[in-house]
Simulated scan of single mutants.
Amino acid sequence: MWSDLCSGIYSYGLNGWQSIGIMLLHLGVFIGIIYLIIRLLILKSKREDSAMALLKKQLAQGLITKEEFRERKEVLKK
């Protein structure tokens, strides 16, 4: 019974190598999606870090006041 169920689910009328190819394709798509999600999260944190570094640099150079720094820092936190 179990073998009949599994053969119905995984049988596309393909031979063994073709079934393995489809399985590897699905695995590759899954790994690719996970990779993109992680990459987007890392890039977002790097952008926020670089924006904060630029803001600190502007404060150090005297281009903005402490109050402007606090306001912009709050905007970046959101």
Results as ranks from 00 to 15, higher is better:
E48T: 15
N15E: 06
A51D: 11
L36I: 15
C6R: 15
K77L: 06
K56A: 00
S3Q: 13
L5G: 01
S7L: 10
G13Y: 05
N15W: 11
W2C: 05
E48M: 12
L63A: 04
K57P: 08
L5A: 04
K73A: 07
L76W: 01
K78E: 03
W17N: 03
G13F: 07
A53W: 13
K46N: 11
R72L: 11
S50G: 06
G8N: 08
S7F: 14
Q61K: 09
E68M: 03
L41W: 12
K77N: 07
L14Y: 06
L36E: 00
L54D: 02
S45F: 13
I31D: 02
T65G: 00
A53V: 15
D4Q: 06
C6P: 02
A51C: 10
S19E: 11
I38M: 07
G13E: 02
S3R: 13
I37F: 04
I33H: 04
K78D: 05
G32L: 04
C6D: 13
I64F: 01
A51N: 07
I33C: 02
G16H: 13
S50E: 14
E74R: 12
G21H: 11
K66Y: 08
L41Q: 10
S45Q: 15
N15L: 06
K46Q: 11
K57L: 11
I20S: 06
F69S: 00
I20G: 02
F30I: 07
L40E: 06
G13M: 03
K73W: 14
Q58M: 05
S19T: 14
L14F: 08
K78W: 14
L36R: 07
A51M: 12
L5W: 13
I42T: 04
R72W: 14
L25K: 01
K77E: 03
L43P: 03
V75N: 06
I31G: 00
L43I: 15
S3P: 04
M23D: 05
L59T: 07
L25Q: 00
K77V: 07
G62Q: 02
L59D: 00
L36S: 01
I37C: 03
I9S: 00
S11C: 07
K66E: 06
E71W: 15
Y35V: 08
G28L: 07
A53N: 14
K56R: 10
K77D: 02
G28I: 05
